[in-house]
Amino acid sequence: MDGFHGNYKYKVVKGIGNGGFGFVDKIELFNIADHRCGEYARKSLSDMGQELREEFRRRFAREVAYQASCVHSNVANIYLCDLKAEQPWFIMDLAAGDLQKDIDSGLLTTTKKIDIIKMVMEGVMYMHSIGYLHRDIKPSNVLRFKDDIYKVSDFGLVKNLDRSSESEILTKIATAMGTAKYMAPEVSIAGDYSKRTDIYALGILIEDLDMPDNPGVQEVVKKSTARRPLDRYSEIKDMRDDFVAAVREESK
């Protein structure tokens, strides 16, 4: 065994991913009675210099807390975590793939694309409903699980809107984070995030899926990626309703 935590123990099978500040291993999880629970993914914080360590441990703990508080079939769940370890980690379901790879494979049918877009919108809509902004929506952060269920993942840049309003009285500095292609203009120009910036990223994600010509869908993309934030949808629900109406014929 490579580690214990509470009533569980795990064995690292292999490394499956590397990011800027963390890495992901495939693990086998067992309970204390040696019952094999199955294969899972474990994300760990990379080792880093003393100066950055505390800050990144804090951010990692925040990522875990936000993701663990989301209970929705289109948001990746967290099952176990150890934030006090030398290299903090958490365990989540092992994904079968991600949307970027599925797009690259060119094998997604139109019906499948429609289902995926609806699932991603449901996941982000849930996050907004509990006051979170995702801030890094893109195909590689949408994971595919068993039965082709797609879930929003990677909470590294999630922001809690309620808490930010409390601290508003103190001056702070805004920085643009995320991935340039999916950044709304107000993010890249002034680091200003809102539900509308997640909606912008969702619009680009729909574009990435390269839907067949459908004026309704094009209109949804156009409205969700408008340059002026107030010209976009204010809520994902409205965007989803327009999208569902536009594809009603094709999903039949």
């Binding site: 103190l170 500095i173 805004a174 120009i189 002034a190 680091g191 002026r228 934030p229």
Partner: peptide, 23 residues
């Protein structure tokens, strides 16, 4: 910055947070 870039009009930002946010 948002006003200078034409992303919002001053009146649209009056009720929005971000007055104390620097870039």
């Amino acid at each position: 910055k948002l006003i200078d870039e034409g992303l919002y009009k001053p009146s649209e930002l009056k009720q929005m947070s971000g007055k104390n946010t620097l870039f």
